[in-house]
Write a protein that binds this DNA or RNA. Sequence first.
DNA 1: AACGTCCTCAACCGCTATAAC
DNA 2: GGTTATAGCGGTTGAGGACGT
Length: 327
Amino acid sequence: MGRPPCCEKVDIKKGPWTPEEDIILVTYIQDHGPGNWRSVPTNTGLLRCSKSCRLRWTNYLRPGIKRGNFTPHEEGMIIHLQALLGNKWAAIASYLPQRTDNDIKNYWNTHLKKKIKKLQTASSDDHDPHVLALSDHSAQYQKKKIFDMATSPLASTDLTFHDNSSNSNFYASSTENISRLLQGWMRSTSTKTTMDTKNVDVSPSGGSHGNIIGDSLATIPLRGYCPKGEKPGGEDLISEEVFESILSFDNLNTKIGNWDHKNSSSDKGSDDENIKDEYDDVKNDRKTRPADDHKNSPPPLSFLENWLLDEASTGQVGDMMELPFIC
DNA sequence: AACGTCCTCAACCGCTATAAC
DNA sequence: GGTTATAGCGGTTGAGGACGT
């Protein structure tokens, strides 16, 4: 005898969730907290499998979830982390706590992967001077990675925001999610009743917003990789801030590669001492941290990874909005 | 207006590791 | 220790909207 089944397999509803179902689920979780998913269908009367309830909460209703366009910095992080970690969407999502792994996976599959492939094809016989400048053995791996990243045709349409609520870069918190779904529910209900929708509170996420970045955000073609025949503003463009992020990343990666190389040949420059110390700290941290610590929390951050996160906190992306754009 | 194609993304599927019985 | 459910993950699907002809 094992555990009893989580729910009856018969009469289980599938497909998109309705606002009513969301409200029932959110109300229940507000009262009881997330977890014990097994009891959710039974206690709420939802004709959903417990797994479906958990996924709906995790991927859509959970607090703090961002929805809408990915920012240039988020795109840069996804590119970098995907290069570092591969298709470990949950791990990548742990560095973007407001994004779900499902969102990141979808965004990668529908936007980034496609553009990267296209531009790599377009630039197959071209080479970036930043890549060619790398010469030592450890840089070979970086070379390929940087080339891959540098040829990433990032976010043209997605960086060219429109004042359009469906493309809004405003991200709804769970409260706003609920508010939004409540509005939709009330509106749809109001068509059946005499409810005065003018009195319905309009959540920030529900309205039409000018994006913070907005129309001022231009895009530029990736230097040296603007495919022939592509007009400015078309696909395969890369934003200035993402490009600078990649270059910064290149420099740090190159430093690591150079330090590794120097370290192995006992040629340690004083300028690299800080890098070495930080590098050692990271290595020690990875050695000393219990394996279980990785299970429910992000792995320890390398200073590369810290850089990725620090960039957001220093407002670098915002500062770059002021940069002139070229094409 | 009608039709076909493409694109997006929420939801599902199937698998593995772990926990509960 | 064996069996079964759950949690978590990555891959895939398909409904519906956008777009082009």
